[in-house]
Structure formats: C-alpha cells, structure tokens
C-alpha cells in the first residue's frame, strides 16, 4: 500500500515490452539502463521506482535467457523492497518467487527452494493459508521438489494446492485439472500407477461433465468408451468403427491442453497394462483434438 508505479514508468515498461517482443533487445536494454541511471540520480538507489525498473530490466534479460544477469538485478530489487516496503510485503514475495524461477531455469532447484519457501511464508501470512496465490506458490514449490525427487513433499504441496483451488475457484477451474495432472506425474515417478490413473479419469470425467452434463449410460466420458472397447475386443474380433459408440464424437470433443495431455498420459498407462485398444482410443482422441 501507499506506493503506486508512476505513469512514466508504466509507459516505459510498455515500450520496453514492445521492443523486447520484437527481439529488439539492443534498444530495450539501453533504454532500461538509462532510465535506471536517471531514477537513481533523482531518487537515490533505495527507492521503490528503482526496484520496479530493476524488475523490468530483469524481465528483458530473462527473455534473452540471461538468467545470471537477471538474478543479479532481482537480488538488488529484493534488497530495496525489503528496505522500503518491509520484509513481509507481497512485492517481496513476488520478487522471491521470480528469483526462485530464475534459479529453477538454471537447474539450481536446491538454491531455488528456500526462496520459494520464504515467498510461501509471506503469502500465507499476508493472504491467509488458503488464498489462490498461496496455491500458486505451492505449485512452484512442488515442482522444485519434484525435480529433486522429494516425492513426499511434492504430494503434500500439490494436495494442498488442489484443496485451495477446488474450494476457492471451484472444481471446473483449469487450475484444478492442471494440478491434478501434476500430482499424477508425481505418482507416475513413484510407480503409483493406480493413483495416477484415478486422477486422469477424474480430470476426463469432470471435463466431460462440464461440457455435456452428468455421466449416465448414454453420456460417458471417453475413458469409459475406451475401456468398453477394450472389453468388447475379446468378444467380437473386429469391433468396427468408433461410430458404433453413440456419444463417441461427443466424448472426443472435450478439448483443452490439459485434457489433451491427460488423454496421452492415460493412454500410456493403458498401454503399460496391455490394454492396447483402450490406449489407441485415447491416443486417437488426443490427435483429433490437436
């Protein structure tokens, strides 16, 4: 509170973003550096405007994959914000998070983790334990732990994030499916295939129901068709084209990147179990919705 980004910084930010999006970094970077110099002259180094400007330049470096330079700038911005806004300010949490992301991009998960945890602590304190921003932070923390094969922690963080998203944003929010998908990845890494399968089916059922209403005998999600096709395979050799399955086309029309990934992942699980017809059904559906 109290501080607002001045208009000239906003304008500059927009300009820098425009240049950066065109790949014109040779223009964007000097522009930022000049602005930084001017700000430091007029306001001194320890000023929120300087911190904001450092963040803008860090973004440009990040887009150029210059993670070390970006990290250096964010550390500087962090120190200014802690001094000027206080240690428990949301801006401090955001900067800590982005520092963690930069370390993560360099594969330095161990270094990233404590930064992410500090960001989480601040957000919990400022926003309460079940705010969606807390869940987002938990997601980042889980991913850092996943990369370090700390699966118990990953599960704990994803489950907490899932609870928050479900209760605050509702079961149909894309964050829910995305987090379930991430949790399933963690299950797969541990060989908990049944748990992963359950989650994938939940995602597909939910997406189907959102689009076409409650599941019943005439309205089944794609994985049920896939399993039925698998079962009927043994009874009649050639099960024929998909058209036979009344609502197949309906089932196949549920479309989102997460659903698509889920179709492929559940397909791979079926394949592991030797359920090739079921696997093919899902894989074909995934290809179609591409």
């Amino acid at each position: 509170g109290g501080y607002e980004v001045p208009n000239r910084l906003r304008t500059l930010h927009n300009l820098v973003i425009q240049y950066a999006s065109q790949g014109r970094y040779e223009v964007a970077v000097p522009l930022c550096k000049q602005a930084l110099e001017d700000l430091e002259k007029s306001s001194g180094h320890d000023h929120p405007d300087v911190a904001t400007m450092l963040n803008i330049l860090a973004l440009v470096y990040r887009d150029q994959n210059k993670y070390k330079e970006a990290t250096h700038l964010l550390n500087d911005a962090l120190a200014i914000r802690e001094k000027t806004l206080g240690k428990d300010h949301p801006a401090v949490a955001a900067t800590l998070n982005n520092l963690a992301v930069l370390f993560g991009k360099r594969g330095k998960y161990k270094e990233a983790e404590p930064l992410c945890k500090r960001a989480l602590g601040i957000r919990e304190k400022v926003l309460g334990r079940s705010h969606p921003d807390v869940a987002k932070q938990l997601n980042n923390l889980a991913l850092l732990c996943l990369n370090q094969a700390k699966y118990d922690e990953v599960e704990y963080y994803y489950k907490r994030a899932l609870e928050i998203f479900e209760s605050k944003l509702g079961g149909d929010d894309p964050s829910v499916a995305r987090t379930k998908n991430n949790l399933a990845t963690c299950y797969l890494k541990q060989g908990k295939f049944k748990d992963a399968e359950t989650l994938y089916k939940e995602i597909l059922t939910r997406a189907h129901e959102k689009e076409f209403g409650s599941v019943n005998n005439d309205n089944k999600p794609i994985w049920m068709h896939a399993e039925e096709r698998e079962e009927s395979k043994s009874k009649q050799k050639d099960s024929g084209p998909y058209v036979e399955y009344g609502s197949w086309y309906k089932a196949c029309k549920v479309d989102s990147p997460t659903v698509n990934t889920t179709l492929k992942s559940l397909g791979a699980l079926y394949r592991r179990q030797g359920k090739l017809e079921a696997a093919e059904t899902l894989e074909e559906c995934a290809t179609k919705s591409r």
Binding site: Y3, L59, P90, A94, K105, L146, N181, A184, T261
Partner: peptide, 20 residues
C-alpha cells in the same frame, strides 16, 4: 508421454512484481 507431461509443468513467473 510421461516426459510430455512433465515438460508441460513450468515454474510460474509472478508478473505482479511490476505493479508495485
């Protein structure tokens, strides 16, 4: 495909750092 799933997961940048 499992790789495909994990590749999709990316650390999320917080854009609010520019609004403070």
């Amino acid at each position: 495909d499992q790789q495909g799933t994990s590749r999709q997961q990316q650390l999320e940048w917080d854009d609010s750092t520019l609004t403070y």
